[in-house]
Design a protein around this nucleic acid. Structure first.
Lengths: 210, 210
DNA sequence: TAGATTGTTAATCGATTAACAATC
DNA sequence: TAGATTGTTAATCGATTAACAATC
C-alpha cells in the first residue's frame, strides 16, 4: 500500500464505492471479478479501475487472471482505515442524532461513537444503544478527557457554529457536519458537510433537464 | 438562466455551497459580496466563482460593483429548483427514517415528504409530523396514486435492493439512498447515494496522512 | 480619474482514456 | 498456443487558473 501516493479526493471517494460493490459480490458468493465488471458497477472505464486499484492493492493481481474479491476487500478496508477503530462523539441528540447513536452499521467503517452531548437536561445521564449522553456543558472536559478527535454535529442550525467553535477549542480536529449551514473554521480543521442540498441539486437538475 | 448550458456534476454541487454561504451573509445583514469573499468561503479561485455565477445569474452583476446577496440567493434557488415543491415518499420508518419525517428543514430545498412506508404493522395508520405511514404492501398502489417520482430509502440492508426494484416498477424515477450498499438499477433511474463511508474515507485518509 | 471589481479568452494543469505491451 | 486480462506509457479531454480588457 503506497500511502505516500498523492491521490485526489475524487479518486479517494471512489474507493468506498468499490468496497460496497465488492461486498455485494461476496454476499453472492462470487470470488473473482474483472476490471470490466468493476467499471460497469462504478460507471467508469476499465483503465480507471486498474489505475485506482494499483494504488490500493499493488501487485495483488496478475495479467490474464481475474482479481480476488476477498483480497480486494481487505486491501480497500486497510487503505481506507476501516480496520482500525476511530472514536467519535456526537453533539445534538435530536431525531437525527438519536438515529446515529442507534445505528449499528458504523462499526463496518471502524467508527465508534462513544458518547452523545445535548443541552436538554432530561437527556443527561441517559443512554441510547448503551452510549452515554452528557450535558453540553461538560463538552470541553469530556472531549479532553476522552481525547477524541472527531465530532459528529447534528444540532439546531442557530447554535451549530457556536458548538463547532467549542469543539475546536477543546481539541477536536475533524467535524462531520449534518447541519445545512456554512461553517467557519481554521484551515487545519477537517470539515465534511453531509449537505442534503447537494443530492437534491443533482436530482432536481437531472429531472428538470430531461 | 441558461438551463441548456452543460455543467458538470462537480460544478452543480458547488451551487448549494454558495447558497449556504450567501444565506449566512444575509443572516448577518450583509447585502453585498465580492467574488473574492465567495472564493474564500468555497476554498476556490475568484475566476471560478465568476464562471459559476455566470451560468446561474448571468447579467445580474456589473464590473466594478459588488454582487447583491439577495439577488444571488434568488437566482440560485431558482436554478437549483428549490422554489418549486418536489414531492417524495420515504421507505423504511426506522430511526433514520423517522428523523427524516420529523425534519422540518427539507422545505427550504423544496422537498416535501408526503408519506412513509414500513413493513411493521404497528406503524401502519400512524403519523409522524403529520405525515401518514402506510404499509409497504400498499407501496405500488400508493406510488401510482400519488404519482410521486422521488423516493428516499432508509430500509435495512438486506431488503433494500428488493424495495428499490419495487419502487422502480411502480414508476419512481429517482432514488435517494441512505443505505450503505451497492444498488443495481436501470440507467434511466437517477440514484444518489448518501454514503457515510465517503465522508469517513476522507476523514481517515487526511488524519492518517498528517 | 483611479481603484476596485467583473467578464472572458487563452494557457495550464490534472484527470481520464486510448493504445499497446506483458503475462497467465 | 490463443484468448483474456492486467499494467503502464502516451494522448486526449475537461476543468481550473492566469491574464487582461471592460466597466462602474
Amino acid at each position: 500500500m503506497k500511502k505516500d501516493t498523492k491521490i485526489s479526493v475524487k479518486q479517494l471517494e471512489r474507493y468506498p464505492i468499490y468496497l460496497n460493490f465488492l461486498l455485494s459480490l461476496r454476499n453472492s458468493n462470487i470470488e473473482k471479478v474483472s476490471s470490466k465488471q468493476l467499471a460497469e458497477a462504478l460507471n467508469c472505464s476499465e483503465e480507471q479501475v486498474r489505475k485506482d486499484l494499483q494504488v490500493v492493492a499493488p501487485n495483488s493481481s496478475k495479467p490474464g487472471c481475474l482479481r480476488d474479491v476477498n483480497a480486494l476487500i481487505a486491501y480497500l478496508k486497510e487503505y481506507l482505515g476501516f480496520n482500525k477503530v476511530n472514536q467519535a462523539i456526537l453533539v445534538g441528540v435530536g431525531h437525527l442524532g438519536s438515529a446515529f447513536l442507534s445505528f449499528k452499521g458504523f462499526s463496518d467503517y471502524g467508527l465508534d461513537i462513544i458518547a452523545g452531548f445535548d443541552i436538554e437536561p432530561s437527556l443527561t445521564g441517559t443512554t441510547i444503544n448503551d452510549k452515554p449522553i452528557y450535558s453540553i456543558f461538560s463538552l470541553d472536559n469530556k472531549v479532553k478527557e476522552l481525547g477524541v478527535k472527531l465530532a459528529i454535529v447534528a444540532t439546531p442550525k442557530e447554535v451549530t457554529q457556536e458548538v463547532v467553535n467549542k469543539l475546536i477549542n477543546s481539541g477536536v480536529k475533524a467535524i462531520w457536519n449534518f447541519v445545512p449551514i456554512h461553517l467557519e473554521h481554521p484551515d487545519d480543521i477537517i470539515v465534511e458537510n453531509m449537505d442534503f442540498a447537494r443530492s437534491l441539486s443533482v436530482f432536481f437538475h437531472r429531472i428538470n433537464n430531461k
